[in-house]
């Protein structure tokens, strides 16, 4: 299966700007399906970004983050060609991870 994580990481020499979009339902547990049954909560809880063996950004999320979540941040020192490791875990224990090259 294709990765659930799409990444754009671009360095301008000084800072690296990172944008990710993740395919995930981010169900709140407050919405009913067509049959009137509650869709149980299902959302990413933690998303981490690691560069050069060090965490550069950690997102702790609740179910109030939109479906197919998006986040953007920037850090210093990333270089073109460097690896950026990204991983998430959700409230049901499912996970996904990917490694992106900084452009």
């Amino acid at each position: 299966m294709a990765s659930t994580i799409r990444v754009r990481a671009t360095s301008n020499g000084e800072t690296t700007e990172v944008q990710v979009l993740i395919q995930h339902p981010m169900d709140t547990g407050y919405v009913k399906d067509a049959k009137g049954e509650i869709i149980p909560p299902h959302y990413i809880q933690q998303l981490t970004f690691e560069h050069g063996g060090k965490a550069v950004f950690i997102a702790d999320w609740g179910s109030g983050v939109s479906k197919d979540p998006y986040v953007k941040f920037a850090f210093k020192n990333g270089k073109k060609g460097d690896d950026l490791k990204i991983a998430w875990i959700d409230n049901k224990g499912a996970t996904d991870a990917t490694t992106a090259k900084i452009q």
């Binding site: 799409r6 944008q19 979009l21 197919d68 953007k72």
Partner: peptide, 15 residues
């Protein structure tokens, strides 16, 4: 549009 929500559908469509 910086990272549009149709991105996943677009990729699936291409495949």
């Amino acid at each position: 549009e910086e990272f549009p929500p149709y991105e996943f559908a677009l990729e699936a469509g291409k495949e």
